[in-house]
Design a protein around this nucleic acid. Structure first.
Lengths: 196, 196
DNA sequence: GCCTTAATGCAACTTTCTAGCGTTAGCAGG
DNA sequence: CCTGCTAACGCTAGAAAGTTGCATTAAGGC
């Protein structure tokens, strides 16, 4: 999921990485056009450096988004899976529709890479929530199923339709997802997905 | 959803359109690299013509895909919504994972446009199926909900994860979707989605 | 056949991305 | 403190992708 962007820590490399990241965020905040040239200019760096380090604009944006999303790695706990999911989904929708998502809709930056990263973090969070539920003895569906029932619709509507799912409908989705827990769990042993 | 690509019928324009479309399909079939230059070359046309007519490679591919998908505009009828959905979803997954989808996964052509078109046709088909069900007096969810519960997972996995959903899991999804029919229908009157 | 007009071809041009090469900054060993 | 080593950078040239203006061509109407 986008290369780790390894660098020699603490030195010129780090300085430049920081400068570039800040340039990107500044441009995003200003709602300005986002191009490699503009970023390079603002960060006082040559475009070629950006291409070398990140490979493409998409990956750079992905890298920035990654760092921005990392914070909510520990989703809040409410005591029940349904509650946890509700809170988390609302947060997820909000985050994806303000930061990352806005850029995807607004610009032509059809940035699948960004959505992919968002999905990656979503999965990690959902795993945590499911794990908690299982520890409490609550029935819980596979994180994979939750991805399909919660994250997939959200991302689908955002990327392909340009819509944001509202709280009321979020609730329905969560209800449906939690309700489907045992039934889906039954067949969890037969692999139902294959790599293409 | 991608401009209609209107042309003066029966003349040079049509000839060129056909030549370009065939060039695209030929390249797709050969698993060859797909670039505007190669397409133009094979169709004996200047690249600028392609850019003018279609605007971008993505739109051209979208146009080709559109024509290729149109045939199943009349999905088969089995007598029940669940049956209809099963057959249709299987077809949809197959189509999207062989033609359009392969291109999306294989290449870097992160072609959101294609998926969008596919989704458009999917929606039209689902509407038909739901309409039939309603006519039979069967409870049926909104086409929108079906998009979220069936199409969204399929596309999500395809585009973001590179997976194809198998028949067994398709069945689960369909079961879940049909089961959720009445419950979701209740709240169909309050709009649960807003444009961003 | 002539006229009108949409669409194409051609070529110049801009933008975006890539690659080679010399230079610089950080780091380690003496 | 000096010296050598190397990853990363800046600069520049150039390839590739995409855009635009203008002359030319081919359909269709009269």
């Amino acid at each position: 999921m986008s290369r780790p962007v390894l660098i020699r820590p603490g030195g010129r490399s780090e300085r430049i990485q920081k400068a570039v990241h800040e340039a990107v965020r500044a441009l995003q905040a200003e709602n300005a056009e986002i191009t490699v040239a503009l970023i390079a200019d603002r960060a006082a760096v040559t475009p070629s450096t950006i291409y070398r380090r990140w490979g493409s604009l998409a990956e750079l944006l992905g890298d920035v988004a990654t760092q921005h999303m990392r914070p909510d790695a520990q989703p809040v706990s409410t005591g029940s899976l349904e509650g946890d999911l509700l809170v988390w989904l609302d947060q997820f929708v909000d985050e994806i529709s303000t930061g990352v998502g806005r850029a995807m809709i607004r610009e032509r930056v059809e940035n699948v890479a960004l959505a992919r990263i968002a999905a990656g973090y979503a999965f990690a969070n959902l795993e945590t929530l499911v794990w908690r539920a299982v520890e409490r003895g609550e029935p819980a569906p596979d994180p994979d199923r939750l991805m399909d029932l919660l994250v997939a619709p959200v991302i689908y509507r955002l990327v392909f339709v340009g819509q944001v799912i509202e709280k009321g409908y979020q609730k329905e989705l969560v209800a449906l997802a939690t309700a489907s827990a045992p039934q889906l769990q039954q067949s969890a042993h037969q692999p139902s997905i294959r790599r293409s």
